[in-house]
Amino acid sequence: MATYGANDLRVGVKIIINGDPYTVVESDFVKPGKGQAFTRCRVRNLKTGRTIEQTFKSTETAEGADVEDRDMEYLYTDGSVWTFMDSTSFEQLEASEAAMGDAVKWLKGNEKCIVTLWNGVPLQVTTPNFAELKITQTDPGVRGDTATGGTKPATLETGAVVKVPLYMEEGEILKIDTRTGEYVSRVKA
């Protein structure tokens, strides 16, 4: 894998810090007129999503992380691993629960996802921005009440629980913003 000099640590570069893969999200060259130069970075841990500050001496190098984003289709799960297929090569890969994270809430099958691979192993799964899912359980709706803006919890076919407007009924399909987990609209059947 490539190694990066401190000068090459630009936004988007993927590197290893303390054994974990990180992506550079901010990078700034700082140097006192007559002194040691540094590259001051903000880096996001690709496993945990946590962002930290990391500074590199100008002479320092960082090991590149073999990280790639691949377009893959979600196929099925056996409850412990989630299987994805590369739409062009038909190669299948299994993602762990940790790699899935919140993605499990929004997938029922055949969604086109971005699977981030580290050394060929799924590290993170990014679902489409919107999911359309059926309500499997919710308290009876209050018909005609479209004005008060109140919400109630509803369980979806994937098991996810979201807040929906009071008038939504079991069996209805709704559109969810998967980035926020929020109800967007009702989908006409």
Binding site: G35, Q36, E53, Q54, T55, K57, E60
Partner: peptide, 20 residues
């Protein structure tokens, strides 16, 4: 909150704190 790996000479530490 400054993370930096390895050792540096005295003046480099001063430069680090000065700039950061």
């Amino acid at each position: 909150g400054i993370h930096i790996d390895g050792d540096m000479p005295l003046q480099a530490w001063r430069d680090l704190l000065l700039t950061h």
